[in-house]
């Protein structure tokens, strides 16, 4: 739908060529507030973006995985209630991450699974630290105690471009 097409024709709206005045500024200012109130920017998005930019500066070439919705029923039974599963995918790779409380009650335990399976180096990158592990032959990997906060996973494919996930909150 084009605002300049049929419905509006080419008729001008009275006042459209006038300069912005105090009324316009007041209304736009109020509108900004209402827009923000109705659909607030998520907490931490600025920080996650800044961290994603830092990571982008480190790895020029990556394939970005996309987060996908997984039906609630797909979470395996027997997991603690507060466990959270996030799945990322791309044409060549799917990474599933299950988050739960670590044994110390403060950290986060990350159970991951990569498909197609194979021993691959996995990095968990957080502001200031990087943890590394290797997925086993079944594609499983674990980080037993991770600080809560922003994190991005990077999977190294033999001879290929590394694959990363968006920055998520653990």
């Amino acid at each position: 739908m084009d605002m300049n097409s049929a419905q509006d024709g080419t008729t001008s709206v009275p006042g459209e060529a006038e300069p912005l005045d105090a009324w316009d500024m007041a209304v736009l200012g109020r509108l900004a507030r209402v827009v923000e109130e109705r659909d607030p920017v998520p907490d931490g998005l600025v920080e996650r973006s800044l961290f994603a930019m830092t990571l982008a500066g480190l790895e020029a070439e990556v394939m970005e995985l996309q987060r996908i919705d997984v039906p609630v029923g797909a979470v395996r039974s027997g997991q603690p209630l507060e466990a959270r599963t996030v799945t990322f995918t791309h044409e060549r790779l799917t990474v599933m991450i299950a988050l739960s409380a670590a044994d110390d009650g403060v950290s986060v335990r990350v159970d991951g699974w990569i498909a197609p399976a194979g021993p691959r180096a996995v990095e968990l990158r957080q502001p200031g630290t990087t943890l590394e592990t290797t997925a086993d032959d079944d594609g499983r990997f674990v980080f037993e105690a991770v600080e809560p906060g922003s994190a991005s996973f990077l999977v190294r494919l033999p001879g290929g471009t590394p694959v990363t996930t968006p920055v998520v909150e653990l």
Partner: peptide, 22 residues
Amino acid sequence: TRGRCLAKLRAVLTDQGKVSWT
């Protein structure tokens, strides 16, 4: 300049009368 969209919004608000926006 105010432009078409803002001019339209202004017309709607002006029609509704009374409220002061500034």
